[in-house]
Computed example of a mutant assay.
Amino acid sequence: MTYQARFPAPFAVLGIMTDGTALTGLDFLPPGTPVLAPQDVISRQVCSQLQAYLADPLFCFDLPLALHGTVFQSRVWQALRQIPSGSTQSYGELANRLHTAPRAVGQACGANPIPVIIPCHRVLARDGLGGFMNSTSGDPLAIKRWLLQHERRQPA
């Protein structure tokens, strides 16, 4: 995978992919992965805005995005961006809003190429945390818990 930046966060190193004009992907890399300074203007903006989000959980991302998904996935990803920081919705609530099934919403969340910026971590199961990044255990859920806890804090 070619990254235009690798940004250190408290929960992972974030591998940032751009096409030179927009953010195209964000991967969670293991802690300790070597950091890479931004290689283009967009990755510099992404790193700057990620730093702002880590300092202030109410920060709203404003980045050019190049998303490649189905029409349905795009609808779900747009709906995710409207869930405010510090808030959550269940897969069922989001499915009702979009007139679809909770499992379909979960699959679209799992296909999200830009987690954190498109906040799929804010979607929970009816009876608990739910999954994250197509996983129901391990490091992905620890990252989801960290992000949710971070967003419950007020900015310093």
Rank of each mutant, 00 (worst) to 15 (best):
D62Q: 06
D62I: 00
D62L: 01
L63C: 11
L63H: 05
L63S: 03
L63N: 04
L63M: 09
L63E: 01
L63Q: 07
L63Y: 06
P64Y: 00
P64C: 07
P64L: 08
P64V: 00
P64S: 09
L65W: 01
L65N: 00
L65M: 14
A66L: 07
A66M: 05
L67Q: 14
L67H: 09
L67F: 10
L67T: 07
H68C: 07
H68P: 01
H68A: 14
H68Y: 03
G69L: 02
G69N: 12
G69M: 12
G69A: 06
T70Q: 11
T70L: 04
T70S: 15
T70H: 12
T70G: 15
T70A: 14
T70P: 03
V71Q: 15
V71A: 15
V71R: 06
V71G: 06
V71Y: 12
V71N: 04
V71I: 13
V71P: 11
F72G: 12
F72A: 11
F72D: 15
F72V: 03
F72K: 08
F72T: 13
F72W: 12
Q73A: 15
Q73F: 11
S74W: 05
S74E: 15
S74D: 08
S74H: 15
S74F: 01
R75K: 14
R75L: 11
R75V: 05
R75H: 10
V76F: 01
V76Y: 11
V76T: 14
W77T: 05
W77M: 10
Q78I: 05
Q78M: 03
Q78K: 14
Q78D: 10
Q78G: 06
A79F: 03
A79S: 09
A79Y: 02
A79R: 06
A79L: 04
L80G: 01
L80R: 09
L80F: 07
L80D: 11
R81N: 00
R81A: 08
R81G: 07
R81E: 13
R81M: 09
R81D: 03
Q82I: 05
Q82G: 04
Q82T: 13
I83F: 10
I83P: 04
I83Q: 11
I83A: 03
I83T: 06
P84M: 00
P84K: 00
P84Q: 02
P84G: 01
P84N: 05
P84Y: 00
P84D: 13
P84R: 04
P84F: 01
P84S: 08
S85D: 01
S85W: 04
G86A: 05
G86E: 04
G86P: 07
G86I: 09
S87C: 09
S87T: 07
S87V: 00
S87P: 00
S87A: 09
S87K: 11
T88A: 08
T88I: 08
T88M: 00
T88E: 04
Q89T: 06
Q89N: 03
Q89A: 10
Q89Y: 02
Q89V: 13
S90L: 02
S90Y: 09
S90R: 14
S90C: 04
S90D: 13
S90E: 14
Y91I: 05
Y91M: 06
G92Y: 04
G92A: 11
G92K: 12
G92N: 06
G92S: 15
G92F: 09
G92R: 10
E93K: 10
E93W: 07
E93N: 12
E93S: 10
E93P: 08
E93F: 03
L94E: 11
L94A: 04
